[in-house]
């Protein structure tokens, strides 16, 4: 505070002091008036909102579940896209596993034997640890076949922590023809 006062030069200070002495009562009333006026302005604003209920912005969340639309880019959780034939596009290349900063994804591969008797690499389990995921989207970007994407779910709470470790490939699913 002291340095603050120093900046006002001595002459100016004197002038202000003289002015203050002469104008004391006027300034006092002016202060009171301006102060009250600023308060009234604030009161008017809050009164406006008190009486205009259409300005209310509350979203009643669990009630509006049915109408709640999340943007299609919203990052909720990673899912492996399956089509109607229970086929997915994951080749088990582990690009997502490598891209993940938190070791959220673990891909366990197996070798399928094709009808021709050839060995072919395929995923056995696509393990996804939702509890470790930070929704950074790096795995989705890394995936060369667009096999995984972000789902728009966001209600992830469970009673048991183990439920958050998910296997993303569905039972009996296999890789789509033609995806390399």
């Amino acid at each position: 505070m002291q340095e603050f006062k120093k900046e006002v030069s001595f002459v100016e200070k004197n002038k202000i002091a003289i002015k203050k002495k002469n104008m004391f009562i006027v300034n006092y009333i002016k202060d009171v008036f301006n102060g009250v006026k600023s308060l009234v302005v604030g009161l008017r604003r809050t009164m406006y909102y008190f009486s205009h209920h259409k300005e209310i912005i509350t979203e009643q969340y669990p009630d509006n579940r049915d109408t709640l639309v999340l943007p299609d880019r919203f990052k909720g959780e990673v899912i492996l896209v399956h089509d109607e034939n229970n086929e997915h596009a994951c080749t088990g290349c582990t690009a997502c596993e490598l891209a993940c900063p938190n070791a959220t994804i673990k891909i366990i591969t197996k070798f399928d034997i094709s009808p021709e008797g050839k060995k072919k690499k395929a995923i056995d389990k696509f393990v996804y640890h939702l509890e470790l995921c930070t929704m950074c989207n790096l795995c989705i970007v890394a995936c060369p076949t667009d096999a995984i994407k972000m789902a728009q779910t966001f209600e992830h709470s469970v009673y048991n922590r183990a439920e958050l470790t998910k296997v993303l490939n569905k039972q009996g699913s296999k890789i789509r023809e033609g995806v390399e």
Binding site: Y49, F50, H53, E55, I56, T58, Q60
Partner: peptide, 13 residues
């Protein structure tokens, strides 16, 4: 209720 309406909320419901 007064607080909620002033704060553009709904208040207890």
């Amino acid at each position: 209720r007064v607080a909620a309406w002033i704060q553009i909320r709904l208040g207890p419901n």
